[in-house]
């Protein structure tokens, strides 16, 4: 697929939208959110479509942290051009996967001062709040976190959310705690698994690594890629599975010798 194709398609879509008299936000700002990996972006025809809903679930229960991290990484990329991010969590989801932690978000690439956090008691409230928030133009993205597989976020609910997102032009990320079998009206659906990171030369932890499976894609085929998140540049890159370098004895590090 050539690089010119997404742009052509985009122009055609706008033309169609204009003919249909539909108010479209596609022309203003960045219409897509590129992940920064060419193979993935090509499949998505440029990147994640703005003003739409994206479903993110962990591949297994233990990967909840990774799925939350992937959603956060996407939100961090979406917030690059300004705008706040709203995280909606049900109380139960917060017990299961922990509260959003400010310093961690700062280090992960999303400025915690631009973060709004809403806690609600029922999943229904979370969806309601998400619909309201998606209509707001000032938000870069809205993440809603539902416990279990989020049975309430079914076809009807996701359809409503998609309409709301189209109105506001922001990204909606639906973060479930289990992979769900519901068919939803979502643009893309991801299953995220944690992957062992490539250790640094001292044998410590490497950059955050995921295995992404794109299981639903409106614009093309599905796929599966190991990727690495660079939290300094807020960039994804492909993870090359090489043999990890042998761990070298590492000298005492100043940080830890001071900390004691």
């Amino acid at each position: 697929m050539t690089a010119a194709m997404p742009a052509t398609l985009h122009r055609l879509r706008q033309a169609v939208a204009k003919i249909e008299g539909q108010e479209t936000d596609l022309c203003s700002g960045s219409p897509v959110l590129a992940l920064g990996i060419r193979t993935v972006d090509a499949l998505l025809q440029g990147g994640l479509a703005a003003a739409s809903l994206h479903d993110i679930a962990p591949a297994a229960v233990r990967d909840v942290g990774a799925a939350a991290g992937f959603a956060l990484a996407l939100a961090a990329r979406a917030a690059k051009s300004g705008g706040d991010t709203l995280c909606i969590q049900t109380d139960f989801a917060a017990i299961e996967s922990g509260d959003v932690y400010g310093p961690g978000c700062d280090l992960f690439g999303l400025q915690s001062s631009r973060l709004l956090i809403l806690k609600v008691s029922r999943p229904l409230d979370a969806l309601w709040a998400m619909e309201e928030a998606l209509k707001c133009r000032a938000l870069a993205s809205v993440i809603v976190e539902l416990p279990h597989d989020g049975p309430l976020a079914d076809l009807t609910a996701t359809r409503r959310l998609t309409l709301a997102a189209r109105e506001g032009g922001s990204f909606g990320f639906l973060l479930r705690h289990r992979p769900s079998s519901f068919t939803g009206s979502v643009e893309t659906r991801w299953e995220v698994a944690a992957a062992p990171s490539r250790p640094d030369q001292f044998g410590g932890l490497g950059r955050t690594a995921f295995v992404l499976s794109l299981t639903k894609n409106r614009h093309g085929a599905a796929g599966r890629w190991p990727v690495v998140w660079n939290h300094h540049d807020r960039d994804f890159s492909a993870l090359s599975f090489g043999v990890a370098e042998a761990a070298v004895d590492r000298p005492d590090r100043t940080l830890y010798s001071h900390a004691g």
Partner: peptide, 21 residues
């Protein structure tokens, strides 16, 4: 904001978690 220097990055990975119980 938090003085980021206090969490000096000597690791490739972030030194604070994204979720806290």
């Amino acid at each position: 904001a938090l003085s980021q220097e206090s969490l000096a990055q000597e690791s490739l990975a972030p030194v604070r978690p994204v979720r806290l119980f």
